[in-house]
Design a protein around this nucleic acid. Structure first.
Lengths: 215, 215
DNA sequence: CGATCGATTGATTCCAATCAACGTGAGTGG
DNA sequence: CCACTCACGTTGATTGGAATCAATCGATCG
C-alpha cells in the first residue's frame, strides 16, 4: 500500500534548502488517517513538513460547509498561513509522518536557512492560493476538475497521478458537490481526456485538450 | 470630491512601521483612473503603497473572464504577490498617488525595517486571500455581497462606507455578475440591512443581521 | 455472504447567469 | 436652460449549470 513511492521524487526535488535544516531542528510525528494536525484558531508557532503521506488544510463554516485550502505532499511545508493564529485546520489524508519545527528556532546559523525556507514556502503558498482564487471565482465545473487533475500531474511528474484524497475532499477543494465532481470525471473519461485505472489512479490521454480546458 | 478623507484614519493606523521607511526610500507616482500600475507577467521587483486613491489587482482569463484579487486603500502595500513575476495586474480605481520602492533597497538599517514591512504585508495578503477563497468557494450570492460590504466597513471604521469601485469590479471580486450584485444590494436594502445614500455611499442599519449573513 | 462506505448515475429543483428593457445621473453642446 | 448622449446601474423574463434528492453500483471487510 506504499503509494508514497509515487511522490518520492518530489521529496528530494522541492524545498531542498530547507529540508536539511528542518530535519536537524525538528521532530517527527506520525498521524493516522483523518487525524487533526492542528486546528482552526490554534496559535501558529510551529511549521510543518510532510515526510510521508499527504495532508489537507480546511476551513469550516458554522453550518458545516467546508472549503479546503490546499493539499500537501512529501517535501511540502505547511502551517504558515497566518500571523499568529491558524485560520485553517490541517488533517492527514492518510497515515502520514510530519516533521515539526518551532518557528522560534530562528537562532544561530540554522536560523537564516530556516527563515529563508519559511519565506519561500510562504510566497509559494500565496501563489497557489491566488491561482486557487481564480479557479473558484471564474471557472466552470469542468474546468475546475481538469485544472485539479493537471495540478496533480504537475506535482507528481509524468502523465498520470495518484489521488490521496476522496471525492468529497476534491469537491470541497473546488467549491463543488461530490456528484458534480463525479459527473465531470465521467465526462472527461467519455471524451478520452483521461483514463482511470482505479478510483484514485488516472492517466492523461489528451494533454493538449486537458491544458486547453485547464485554461 | 475628496473621498480620501473617509480613509484617512487607516493611513496612519496601518503599516506604521513601514510607512516611514518606504517614504524615505521610495518615489511617488500619480496614476489616473483605470491606468495600469503593473501588468500580469511583468517582473515583480518593486513594491507599492497607496498614498491616496485606491487600487485593484486583477487577473484575466484568455476569454475575458476576470477575477479581482483585492482592493487596496491608502496605507496598504501591494504588488508582492509572487516570487519573481506578477500573476495579477494592478490598476488605479481612480486618480491615485502611489509610493514605489525597489525590493532590492534591502540594504543598510532601512533594509531591516523594509524587510519586516514586506513580511507583514505578505502574511496579511495571504490571510485576506484565504478569506477570499472561502467566500468564493462556499458562500451564496447574498452572503458574498454582505461580506464585501462588512469588509469595507471594517476597513473604513464607523458604520458606513464609500465604495471607490463600480459594480463590475465588485462582481469580479465576488465571482458574480453585475446584475446579481445589483439584485443582492437591492435585497439588502429592502430588508433594511443597509441603506444607500448614493450609488457608492452606504450605511449599515442592522449590524447583527449583516454579521450573521457575512458568517 | 451480507454489510457498509464511497462513488456513480438519474430525475428534478433552484440559484445565479443570460438576455433584454428601462432608469438615472453627469457631461455636452445647441 | 434644456435636450441629447452615454456610461452605469437597476429590474424583469427566461435559461442554464450545478445542487439537491434519490437510487444503484462496486469494493472492501468482517
Amino acid at each position: 500500500m506504499s503509494v508514497s513511492v509515487a511522490y518520492s521524487a518530489r521529496q528530494t526535488a522541492s524545498c531542498n534548502a530547507a529540508t536539511g535544516t528542518i530535519e536537524r531542528l525538528g521532530v517527527r510525528i506520525a498521524y493516522s488517517k483523518d487525524e487533526e494536525i492542528f486546528g482552526q484558531e490554534e496559535p501558529a508557532d510551529l511549521i510543518y513538513q510532510v515526510v510521508s503521506g499527504a495532508v489537507r488544510t480546511s476551513r469550516l463554516l458554522s453550518d458545516g460547509r467546508r472549503q479546503i485550502g490546499d493539499f500537501y505532499y512529501p517535501g511540502d511545508i505547511f502551517g504558515l498561513e497566518s500571523g499568529s493564529e491558524h485560520r485553517f485546520s490541517a488533517e492527514a489524508l492518510r497515515d502520514s509522518v510530519i516533521l515539526i519545527v518551532k518557528r522560534s528556532a530562528l537562532r544561530g546559523q540554522d536560523g537564516a536557512a530556516l527563515e529563508r525556507a519559511i519565506w519561500e514556502a510562504t510566497t509559494r503558498e500565496l501563489e497557489r492560493t491566488q491561482e486557487h482564487l481564480l479557479l473558484l471565482g471564474r471557472k466552470t465545473a469542468c474546468e475546475k476538475v481538469a485544472c485539479f487533475l493537471m495540478d496533480v500531474v504537475a506535482r507528481c511528474g509524468g502523465h498520470g497521478g495518484e489521488l490521496p484524497m476522496g471525492r468529497q475532499d476534491i469537491a470541497d477543494y473546488l467549491g463543488l458537490t461530490i456528484e458534480t465532481v463525479s459527473r465531470m470525471l465521467s465526462q472527461l473519461q467519455s471524451t478520452s481526456m483521461v483514463e482511470f485505472d482505479a478510483l484514485r489512479r488516472f492517466r492523461v490521454m489528451n494533454p493538449q485538450g486537458m491544458a486547453r480546458l485547464a485554461a
